[in-house]
Design a protein around this nucleic acid. Sequence first.
DNA 1: GGCGGCCTGTGACACCTGTCACACCCGGGC
DNA 2: GCCCGGGTGTGACAGGTGTCACAGGCCGCC
Lengths: 226, 226
Amino acid sequence: MNAEDLSRMMSGSALLSSWGAAELQDLLERAALCPMKKGDVLLHQGDAGDYLIILLDGTIRVSMVASNGREIILDYLEPGSVLGEIALLDGGERTASATALGEGQYMKLSAHAFREVLERHPSVAWRLLREMARRLRNANNTIESDRAYASGPRLARSLQRLMQNGAEGVALKLSQSELGAFAGISRENINRQLGAWSDAGIVALEQGRVRVLDMEVLEEIAMAAE
Amino acid sequence: MNAEDLSRMMSGSALLSSWGAAELQDLLERAALCPMKKGDVLLHQGDAGDYLIILLDGTIRVSMVASNGREIILDYLEPGSVLGEIALLDGGERTASATALGEGQYMKLSAHAFREVLERHPSVAWRLLREMARRLRNANNTIESDRAYASGPRLARSLQRLMQNGAEGVALKLSQSELGAFAGISRENINRQLGAWSDAGIVALEQGRVRVLDMEVLEEIAMAAE
DNA sequence: GGCGGCCTGTGACACCTGTCACACCCGGGC
DNA sequence: GCCCGGGTGTGACAGGTGTCACAGGCCGCC
């Protein structure tokens, strides 16, 4: 990949274009550039984590399987996201798996290279800190939702989180099972809840998709304690 | 505070002694040194967050109130912990409140001072990254517990987390309500669960305290999916 | 000492939510 | 076209958990 490809890629993503060109160029010199295709597992829960990934193109699902066997989807990541930092930084096992949802490209950075870049570019450290802060905030929100809200508001909140990059009326391409794993609700109850909302005109259901029609009402539901 | 006080304080805590003397000295020059007493609220959920705190002495409870009014206790922090980074880094509101559990002392660092120290000591950035990684891992564990485990194992896991710094047989000084807020279980069910474990000889109950007698069994319970 | 507040113990109960079971639909591959 | 797999819709049901209600105990404070 050369500087031209890089700048083309960067201009396509708000997150990536916030990275400085010098930083990215420096990263590229030290990192392995890898292609990915649907279903590829970039990180495996339980493995030792001695590298870090920066997503350049494509979407990734971050999930873990709890010991009761059910899957928990923690997040969906867009280009510009960093992943794998936790295990890299604290030396523990990978807490979750990362799976590609489609074609894409990513940088793979060894612990050593990462450390080097950090030392040369303090701004990268700053950026990483900000990203981790965002993720911690997210995690705390999730904990609050899980603890304090009934299934309805929880689903509403999950939909809101998924809508972050997409206007009202955009269809979320997700099966109801997947939504369940994201929201922490059984597939059947997702279906019942969505059915009710569909009757009320809040969402529209399509095969393998959910279209949010009325964000306002959804927001209200997301606030209610039950 | 002079270098002598500082080194005395550092030697008392494993976490603090891992901070370099030069780093801490540099921090002290820029930070306000504050005393705290039981009940002081160092950070207020919802406020703007333009400063950061490093705990030097004492214990702090980090908690948030969910909109249904119940309290969620996220963590208990020991000397050497950094807190308030999330809001400082991403510019949002404080996600949680921090309350002193007793006498103590802490450093209060403005955003500006923090940035200065980060630039002068990359090792501080590294340290912070590690701390946040630890916290993210914790949060993910909590989410997994909340989603996948019934109340029994969840309580067992909470007790394990609280026992991290303390051998078997040590009493945890916590009311059952507080344990409930930490584990995400109602006070009544905490009581019932502890009662059963007490009959089985796994724990001993005292006024305002729980003494863990058999870590092994507790560990087994913590693993079981239900 | 007496009192009040917080903490602990316990029963009854309603309700939410997951689970199981099954039918149906849709789309794609052979 | 036909079949098959994954996704969707629904009913019945059981079990776990929160909630309410209330009694009793321990402690510290006035």
